[in-house]
Design a protein around this nucleic acid. Structure first.
Length: 201
DNA sequence: CGTTGGATCTTCT
DNA sequence: GAAGATCCAACGC
């Protein structure tokens, strides 16, 4: 069990990082309680040339500014007024690439996650979507945007699991139909046969 | 079962 | 002032 080094996030190819994040463990320590889940589904957002990205066309606003930072920090933002979506910023400074974590498999602190989601028992819909996994892990767009993933509030660690290329299912991204031709790119990655991926599309 | 629309509020135009 | 990288309850069949 070891935190992913900063160099992991600085790689030039956001698609590679998106794939490599599968099988890693997203951990949070908020309210003093450790909660974690194994990442089973991600989506890559390829910066300025990707119409589905908030940073398309080099758009810099208060919200997107954090994506232009050096990789290895969180980008959390509010979606539809209700859900915080958690992304990992990748690549060098000034290159606004990011990977959205879409689903995890609950591992540590399941009791706490059930509490946060207002659920009684462990079911697929505890963490199988970008909005609800943030809820389960206690991630809030205001408190947890722009955090350094080398610190001890939110981080990603490896526990020795490696996901092989042939265990990865690629498909189109979700909820980005407005992105025209870029909406068709197969930049959504899932672990084959995992029960814990989101069901959209 | 599949489909539809409401919730809810920040961000950008 | 409109739309959004979502979720889920309520409907209709």
């Amino acid at each position: 069990m070891s935190k992913l080094p900063k160099s992991f996030y600085l790689k030039g190819n956001v698609l590679e990082v998106g794939k490599k994040l599968l099988g890693k463990f997203l951990c949070t320590k908020i309210d003093g309680t450790l909660t974690s889940g194994m990442i089973v589904e991600t989506e890559a957002y390829n910066g300025v040339s990707d119409k589905a990205s908030h940073a398309f066309g080099n758009r810099r606003t208060n919200r997107t500014e954090i994506m232009f930072a050096e990789g290895g920090v969180s980008y959390v933002y509010l979606c539809y007024g209700i859900y915080s979506l958690f992304n990992v910023v990748t690549n060098e400074k000034e290159i606004p690439h990011a990977v959205l974590i879409r689903a995890v498999e609950p591992i540590d602190g399941i009791e706490k996650m059930l509490l946060r989601r207002g659920k009684q028992k462990l079911e697929k819909n505890l963490t199988s979507g970008p909005g609800i996994l943030s809820q389960a892990l206690g991630i809030n767009f205001r408190r947890h945007n722009g955090l350094d993933l080398q610190k001890n509030e939110i981080w990603i660690e490896s526990r020795g699991v490696e996901i092989m290329e042939n265990e990865i299912v690629k498909s189109t991204r979700v909820g980005v139909d407005y992105a025209e031709e870029d909406a068709k790119l197969p930049w959504r990655f899932r672990i084959k046969n995992s029960k814990w991926t989101s069901k959209a599309k």
